[in-house]
Design a protein around this nucleic acid. Structure first.
Lengths: 155, 155
DNA sequence: GATCAATGGTTGTATGGTCGAACTAATTGG
DNA sequence: CCAATTAGTTCGACCATACAACCATTGATC
């Protein structure tokens, strides 16, 4: 690896660190979008809203969370009345999760808040640079997934 | 805001969400770089290593953390023997923080691990795209800072 | 100079988050 | 029919954060 590569790695690190802080990704009890909903719950509801009924392990895979964590998360969501644990014909071990009407409403509101937050973010990026930023993030995500040692092995 | 803008906001949201998950930013007790050091401690040590002695409030400002959180964080670090609370001439309210020799060593090791992790990330991005990605992240960080409502007002 | 507001930190309390290990129940394969 | 696997639950340990109440110091005002 050359000097330039190291410089790039350091630059990348600084940017990502800065972004995490600036975007408020540290607050567990609020989404960065300002909604007073715990982040993890927002993520879970979002997945369920987008991709219909899921089992807990499917959800855990998407969120990259351990099954015990998912179990608790789901309990919180059912307690909130947003998610229902529905039994289905077939494998009786599986717990199928689906949003309740309340959950769908909440998911919608969260989506709106999120869109507003990201729209605000976009407004602060020069218009001509926006597609570039999005493409760059795509590359970054792919790279993260490809270079992920810990996450894939865990769980 | 046009339709295209909304699409872009959604795309941006999806990418960032995906990155947070893929990069393992959810683990509080490990850095995403694989070191068994709590993330917040790693951040604090990094700041102190880079920018010399800091007061607690200065550190909190950089990390975007509330003063009580910083106080506890610093206690952990002193307990670990990485940070020293040094008194200095001048304002007696201020607590100046500096790394111990052990702390400097730890900071170095963390920096190495971090660099390795980010280098791995970079390797999975086509070489010609790397500068673009870094520039894009810069724009993103600036935008996040500019569009930050919650963070600036908090604390 | 005495008083009182502002500033920097600490401690207490309440949430929220994550994992790994031990355990149960259901399924699948020999 | 029993063993290994798979899906989830519960428990324990740890980490992260904020807000409020409190203390000490400082600095400004009178």
């Amino acid at each position: 690896m050359s000097e330039g590569d190291l410089d790039q790695a350091l630059a990348l690190q600084a940017r990502i660190t800065a972004f995490v802080r600036a975007f408020g990704l540290h607050q567990p009890d609020r989404t960065p979008c300002g909604t007073p909903v715990p982040t993890s719950e927002a993520h879970a509801v979002g997945e369920l809203d987008r991709d219909g009924p899921l089992t807990q392990s499917m959800l855990g895979e998407r969120l990259r969370l351990e099954k015990s964590t998912v179990s608790r998360l789901v309990s919180q969501l059912t307690g909130r009345g947003w998610v229902r644990r529905a039994d289905r014909d077939g494998d009786a071990r599986l717990v199928w999760l689906e949003l309740t009407p309340d959950g769908r409403r909440a998911a919608g509101e969260l989506a709106v808040a999120r869109a507003a937050r990201f729209a605000a973010l976009l407004r602060n990026i020069p218009a001509e640079q926006r597609p570039v930023v999005i493409d760059a993030l795509t590359a970054l995500v792919d790279a993260a997934a490809a270079s992920d040692v810990t996450g894939a092995a865990r769980g």
